[in-house]
Design a binder for these strands. Structure first.
Lengths: 116, 116
DNA sequence: CTAGACTGATCCGGGGCCGAAACGGATCTG
DNA sequence: CAGATCCGTTTCGGCCCCGGATCAGTCTAG
């Protein structure tokens, strides 16, 4: 079974969620930063700078900066790969898990209020 | 009837959509700009700078700048209110309609591929 | 051991966005 | 009228992000 979602519902869902995140004065992530966050939490490790750059079709410095910002917010952390010290492994944090769980709840709640 | 969406599905949906929009090298809108765009197209007119600023809980100059950017992209246009020439009415454009319809199709298509 | 490949970080000039404050035009009010 | 008020825009100093080029550290093949 797949999830049915009409175009008008999709836009309404997006609007409510984006509006809510804009209104709340929480950490305001760019779409790239958010994409990185979601990718790290939803796809299987390991996650490297180069890998993320390729996955998002973005330059390496952009990933480095995004990791700086996300690390500052404690939503993600870096760890040297001891097996190959050239690599940096991007890992989850407790705060990041909580942040994404809250976000998921927001989306489901908005979806629940949507007329189907 | 309401729309059922589990937290894990919500995150997966969001990741796929955000990842796709980041990868595509289309106009890369900030969340505020996108929120403005959605608000103008989904809620009933008239839309003024002050009204949008209040709705998004954001300063007026931020709205002005966002309208500059969205106008440059031809996704939205400004029009003087002839009844009260202090006001600026924000209006839709053909290109904006197409842009949002495409986006809605992207979301529905991703949702359709989601395991329910 | 060394030359080369590969990693992530940094440098750099350029550009966008930020909010507070000030501005000019339009409108209302006394 | 003149002053107060409302509107959107502009100015200002500051901060963050952009990507190409380059860097230092690490690994590997010969």
């Amino acid at each position: 079974m797949t999830l049915e979602l009409k175009p008008v519902q999709a836009l309404a869902l997006w609007q409510d969620v984006v509006l809510e995140t804009v209104r709340r004065e929480g950490p305001d992530l760019s779409s790239r930063q958010f994409a990185i966050l979601l990718t790290v939490y939803l796809t299987s490790p390991p996650h490297t700078v180069r890998g993320l750059a390729g996955a998002l079709n973005v330059s390496k410095p952009a990933i480095t900066r995004a990791l700086d910002a996300l690390g500052q917010l404690d939503l993600l952390k870096r760890k040297r790969d001891e097996a190959d010290r050239r690599n940096v492994l991007v890992q989850r944090t407790v705060k990041g898990s909580v942040f994404l769980r809250d976000f998921a709840d927001l989306v489901t709640s908005v979806a629940g209020r949507l007329e189907a």
